[in-house]
């Protein structure tokens, strides 16, 4: 029995969500009285792999095969399942990222394991795990009754916790079936200068109240100053003012940042569904009756075109 955590690399680096998954997996291993190994696929320098020790992994299996350079969920799932067998792991932890969502279900089927997607807490003694449901309108406490278990952890749910451990790096080269490589990655386009929305700690979001795409300059400036990602309501992306990838809510991305700033968004139930698990919510809206104020921590009733520049100026002063 042991716990295995999959550490997703992006261009050879680990993101915060990976360290969070390792922190969670370490706490889970401690709770189960067992050890934690990690599995890394793709080219990652040993110095980067060593970072995993900081958060409690005592071993990392590194798989560097050329044909596994790009993420292909079918092949990666096989490798992770092989690693779980090798490590005698009965619990596999991953991040509930875009790639994680395509990977965890395949790993679960391979291991005949029950799967919790979107976990937000450690399991209780009977292996019940709290997860988000109904697009953030509720939580479902789900009990895994299978012997093997897979957990996909929501970003920002557990936090990064240091737990320095000596880590051993071990090369691992399981066989990869060619049929596992039937999907081929042709191109990857990544905006490197932008904070990605699902794992952003701060999100600045704009709605129809901003009148048009030409007014997003102040949203972006505020986001830049805060190191935040930008988001929008559905009508804004429907009108092509902003890309679909920024649309949050019930039919967009569900997010749970530490701080969500909503500018000119009314707070319709479908919008709230995707953002209400944010830790702190700030609402700027000229209508005091806007439903969003009911779920806000801080509110400013006023015209965004006057309020936001003031906030930007104050933030610049604050940062010195």
């Amino acid at each position: 029995m042991s716990v295995l955590v999959y550490v997703e690399q992006v261009e050879g680096k680990f993101k915060k969500s990976v360290f969070e998954a390792v922190s969670y997996a370490k706490a889970l291993a401690d709770q189960q009285g067992t050890s934690l190994s990690a599995i890394s696929i793709g080219n990652v320098a040993d110095s980067e792999l060593n970072e995993l020790g900081k958060y409690g992994a005592s071993k990392v299996l590194k798989v560097e095969a050329d044909q596994l350079k790009n993420f292909v969920n079918q092949a990666y799932a096989s490798v992770i399942a092989e690693a779980a067998k090798k490590e005698n792991a009965n619990i596999v932890v991953l991040s509930n990222s875009f790639s994680g969502k395509g990977l965890a279900p395949r790993v679960a089927v391979k291991l005949e394991a029950g799967l919790i997607d979107g976990a937000v807490e450690l399991p209780s003694s009977d292996f019940s795990v709290k997860k988000t449901a109904f697009s953030g309108k509720a939580f479902a406490i789900t009990t895994l009754t299978s012997a093997n278990k897979v957990i996909a952890l929501n970003p920002n749910a557990f936090g990064v916790k240091e737990n320095p451990t000596n880590i051993a790096i071990e090369a691992f080269s399981p066989e990869v079936k060619s049929s596992d490589l039937a999907a081929m990655v042709k191109e990857i386009v990544r905006a490197t200068n932008k904070v990605s929305l699902p794992d952003a700690e701060i999100v600045v979001s704009g709605g129809r109240g901003l009148k048009g795409p030409e007014n997003w300059g102040m949203v972006e400036e505020l986001a830049d100053l805060l190191g935040a990602a930008t988001a929008c309501s559905k009508p804004v992306s429907d009108a092509d003012w902003r890309p679909h990838s920024e649309h949050v809510g019930q039919t967009g991305i569900a997010i749970s940042p530490n701080l969500y700033i909503a500018i000119g968004i009314s707070g319709a139930i479908q919008h709230l569904a995707g953002v209400s698990s944010s830790k702190v919510i700030v609402v700027i809206n000229k209508d005091p009756e806007a439903p969003f104020f009911k779920v806000a921590d801080y509110g400013i009733v006023g015209d965004a075109f006057e309020v936001v520049p003031k906030i930007i100026a104050a933030l610049k002063a604050h940062k010195g």
């Binding site: 309108k137 939580f139 789900t142 806000a296 509110g299």
Partner: peptide, 19 residues
């Protein structure tokens, strides 16, 4: 493989602080 044992609704937020 799994069963839902209970549901919870998010804790209500405190009232908004208006600035």
């Amino acid at each position: 493989m799994s069963k839902i044992s209970k549901f919870e609704t998010p804790a209500p937020r405190g009232s908004v602080k208006l600035i």
